[in-house]
Structures are given as C-alpha cells and as structure tokens.
C-alpha cells in the first residue's frame, strides 16, 4: 500500500499512497464499511451531541478500511448483519495509534 519515492534533489524519502493498488479484503464475515461524507458526519455527531473521538474506534490500519482512503477523525458507517434485528448500523471513528 505504501510505496517509497525517492526525490532526486535531496536525501528525503516521501511516502505516497497508491490508492489504485489496494485490493479490498473480502470475507463473508466482513460487514459493509463506508466512509461518511463530511455532511453526514457532522449531522451524525450533532444528532448524538458528541465528538468523533467519543465513538467506538477503528484503527487507521484496519484491513477492512484500507480501500476507503481514510484519514484520522473520519467516521466509518458499518452495516452489520444481525441475528436479532436483520441489519444494524454501527459507527466507528478512525483513530491513529
């Protein structure tokens, strides 16, 4: 996912993200992960009167969200299959740790 690009003028190594190369991990147990748009995100946080760090967390390195091109403080909407309710939605805030 990371590729190293050497800049000729100096000894700096810059990490660039190669979005196209990321393959989505597939498994029956992985529920649908979606990144909330900025508008939906603020609406959600306003509805529950919270900050994104108060949501349940998901690591930025989590395999299931690599294809979404996420950054810190994004909110991931997860649509789970549930035994009891059919489908349920769940939100996780992206953290970098």
């Amino acid at each position: 996912m990371w590729s190293r690009v050497q800049i000729s003028s100096g000894p700096f190594i810059i990490k660039t993200k190669m979005v196209n190369k990321i393959n989505q991990v597939k498994h029956n147990l992985i529920p649908l992960h979606e990144k909330l748009s900025e508008k939906d995100r603020t609406a959600l946080l306003e509805k529950y009167n919270i900050e994104s760090k108060e949501l349940p967390r998901i690591s930025i390195k989590d395999v299931a969200i690599q294809h979404l091109d996420v950054k810190e403080k994004d909110v991931i909407k997860i649509t789970r299959k549930s035994h009891t309710a059919g489908t349920t939605t769940f939100y996780r805030g992206v953290v970098n740790d």
């Binding site: 991990v25 597939k26 498994h27 029956n28 147990l29 992985i30 529920p31 992960h33 998901i58 690591s59 989590d62 395999v63 299931a64 969200i65 997860i78 789970r80 996780r92």
Partner: peptide, 25 residues
C-alpha cells in the same frame, strides 16, 4: 475459499480481516 475460511484465533482474524470480524468471531 478465502471468503469463508475462519480461524478461532481472535487476534489472527483481527489482523487478517479487521476488528469487525473479530467482534463477530
């Protein structure tokens, strides 16, 4: 079939498929 194969090791499943799968496991 990589889409259905499962392990009973929580941490292995987490590193392979993410936190949501660990929860389900």
């Amino acid at each position: 079939d990589t889409e259905r194969t499962i392990s009973n090791d929580l941490y292995e499943m987490e590193s392979m498929f993410g936190i949501e799968v660990a929860r389900q496991i």
